[in-house]
Nucleic acid binder design. Sequence first.
DNA 1: CTTCTAACTATGGTTTTCCATAGCCAGAAG
DNA 2: CTTCTGGCTATGGAAAACCATAGTTAGAAG
Lengths: 179, 179
Amino acid sequence: MSEDSAQAPSEGVLQRLGEFAARDRWPAKGWCRIERALEVIGTRSAMLVLRELFYGGTRFDEFTRRTGLSEAVVAGRLKQLHADGIVERRPYREAGKRTRDEYVLTERGRQLFPILVALMQWGETLRDDHRTGVELIHRDCEAPLTVQVRCTDGHRVPLEQGAVRIKDEDYVKSALGRK
Amino acid sequence: MSEDSAQAPSEGVLQRLGEFAARDRWPAKGWCRIERALEVIGTRSAMLVLRELFYGGTRFDEFTRRTGLSEAVVAGRLKQLHADGIVERRPYREAGKRTRDEYVLTERGRQLFPILVALMQWGETLRDDHRTGVELIHRDCEAPLTVQVRCTDGHRVPLEQGAVRIKDEDYVKSALGRK
DNA sequence: CTTCTAACTATGGTTTTCCATAGCCAGAAG
DNA sequence: CTTCTGGCTATGGAAAACCATAGTTAGAAG
């Protein structure tokens, strides 16, 4: 039967398929995309600086003032975000001022947008002081923004209809074999 | 003109509307939903435990073994996730074993799903070893999962079409006034 | 040349996060 | 009653993240 490799249906959670049903076969060690993402944007300071970048902030002093982070931390974070290809530095010049750099999101940085929206959406549910805070909206129709999980065929996918599997079982077997 | 409060169009970033154009009016201090979310799930250990919960893990030793975190950290994180209403404990009993608790996501916990998918999606773009790792798919059609930013009217909203504004400007003014 | 300022860097200390090791405890098995 | 095991707790210490304060530096202005 084709069901023998699937986990016992524990409700409301991803279904594990194939070899991944025996979860231990897959050592997240360096392969998990979540861990990978967190190495880059996994600190509070990184998220707050990113928030300001998405809100249109570009200058060093904006980041310190609006995030409440110390200058040292902001400097370090910008340096790291730059090294990771999330922001780029652009020299610019205001009249009567010296040349300085502004920071703008790269394409890779802009791809973080869904993460920020997802965090805001979930953070909204934590308390009920719904008069404070900001909201994201669609410029055209002014309707609030949300994130949705969909498959590439366009269906909305609630958690109960999701599943996980190892992308390339043959590769994983051979990679684990010679070790 | 209604444009005077909008920021200079810095390309590919959220447009700031209304009072929020002068960003300093809004002190994120305690009001930012992102900060709020990070207070609860802002650590690496919380994310890794959550990953296992979404993959269907329920038992203490699964979490330690599969995340590589120490027992103390897992215990502390489960305690916090429980206090924050993200997991619930359910006593259960295996034949011949003593009673213990398993951990399952609550509804609030399940609402973290888009965050996890968004992180995985972005983490995928960081390196190009595309044979490693797992993928999330739709059970029905087996197409891979993605997160999309949409407005509540159903339009897909790329970053350039997004905007931010303060939810309740009157409230913010009065709240900041008497302080 | 001196002054001023934005954008950093450096230093020291605190807090948070984490690991490793060891110990404890409840209850089923013997 | 003793043993064993899974699920923790306790302790000590290392490392990372962060803050506050105090410089430093490049260039424009005077």
